[in-house]
């Protein structure tokens, strides 16, 4: 892909360290990525991976401690005013707004801070709230809105100034399926308007598969994979081998030794006394190797089949398989 002239976000070697009582915490550890104009770019990663930190840096709320980033060609560290003129951001977890002021007046307030003429602001508020299904609730005080509508108002606010780049941190967190879907539709349609770029951090795989053009998976402050969802699945995950094994193995060390096995997850079914093991493999040879290794270790493979990996599986395989492992890391 040649996005040379049309990159809206360019990140290179971005680092951020926080000081904390128990020593420095590295939230971002040399992240590099590019986002093209008009793209919806997803950022996936486990809790504490550094997603929010990256969004805060790109939206000029936080300075990096190393590396550089540009948004629409402006350096976030040295030209924050220019960046702010072309961006906006929102966090689904926060739902910013003045409690005792109506949703409409909250939106109007922000439009004024962006210096929009009132007539234009009114028009924009009407449009946004229509597409977001907020119209009926515009005159309610912010605190009296339900979580979902507060979130719609928050998202409307993030588009109020017609930004070229919008950063969203978990925009659909805590929403019912239908509302989340309508917000996704909204994002999709907004991104297709005059080359608007949307960068969103999320935990929702369906969201990524549904609307993201490209994705980066970050873990412990580093990008561990990037590409289109299809690419990720193909390159890292497909095909997957699923096998039902009896009795449930105590550990899966033997799979680690098989060449071409990229990762695995397992779930035990105590009633049927078997384990379902998913193995992400590089090739058919690796599948065969995995089956052989399992049999060789004295387990019976009751059934096995091939399956296209979902993004979730790719994610789990890349990032780690369970709490235990992560807790140990956190503890260390």
């Amino acid at each position: 892909m040649t996005r040379e002239s049309t990159r809206s976000v360019e990140v290179s070697g971005l680092k951020r360290e926080f000081k904390s009582k128990s020593g420095p915490v590295v939230a971002l550890d040399g992240v590099s990525l590019d986002v093209g104009e008009g793209e919806i770019f997803g950022v996936l990663g486990p809790n504490g991976a550094g997603k929010t930190t990256m969004i805060r840096i790109l939206s000029t709320l936080l300075l990096p401690t190393g590396g550089a980033a540009k948004v629409m060609g402006f350096d976030v560290e040295h030209e924050p005013e220019k960046v702010r003129r072309v961006i906006n951001m929102a966090s689904g977890a926060e739902k910013a707004g003045y409690d005792f002021i109506s949703a409409k007046r909250n939106l109007w307030f922000f439009s004024q801070l962006y210096g929009m003429p009132s007539a234009l602001a009114e028009k924009r508020i009407t449009e946004l709230s229509e597409t977001l299904g907020l119209t009926k609730y515009l005159d309610r005080k912010f605190y009296a809105l339900s979580t979902g509508y507060r979130q719609r108002a928050t998202i409307a606010r993030a588009f109020i100034n017609d930004p070229k780049v919008v950063f969203l941190d978990e925009p659909t967190i805590g929403l019912d399926v239908m509302t989340a879907r309508s917000i996704r539709d909204f994002l999709r349609s907004e991104a297709s308007k005059n080359g608007r770029t949307i960068m969103l951090a999320t935990h929702n795989m369906a969201e990524v598969e549904a609307i993201c053009d490209r994705v980066a998976i970050i873990d412990k402050g580093k990008i561990i994979a990037a590409g289109t969802p299809e690419e990720l699945k193909r390159r890292l995950g497909a095909p997957a081998l699923v096998m039902e094994v009896s009795p449930p193995p105590k550990d899966l060390e033997m799979l680690r030794l098989v060449a071409g096995v990229k990762g695995f997850t397992s779930s035990a079914d105590d009633e049927r006394e078997l384990s379902t093991i998913q193995v992400v493999v590089e090739s058919d040879a690796a599948s065969k190797g995995a089956l052989d290794a399992m049999t060789a270790s004295g387990h019976k493979v009751v059934a096995s089949w091939r399956k296209e990996a979902t993004l979730e599986e790719v994610f789990v395989a890349l990032v780690g398989s369970g709490f235990k492992e992560r807790e140990e890391e956190v503890g260390s």
Partner: peptide, 17 residues
């Protein structure tokens, strides 16, 4: 109320607000 960072992002400085 989480509005402060968004106020910061709209203008050069929150001093005006």
């Amino acid at each position: 109320l989480s509005v402060f960072p968004h106020i910061y992002l709209t203008a050069r400085s929150t001093a005006l607000y």
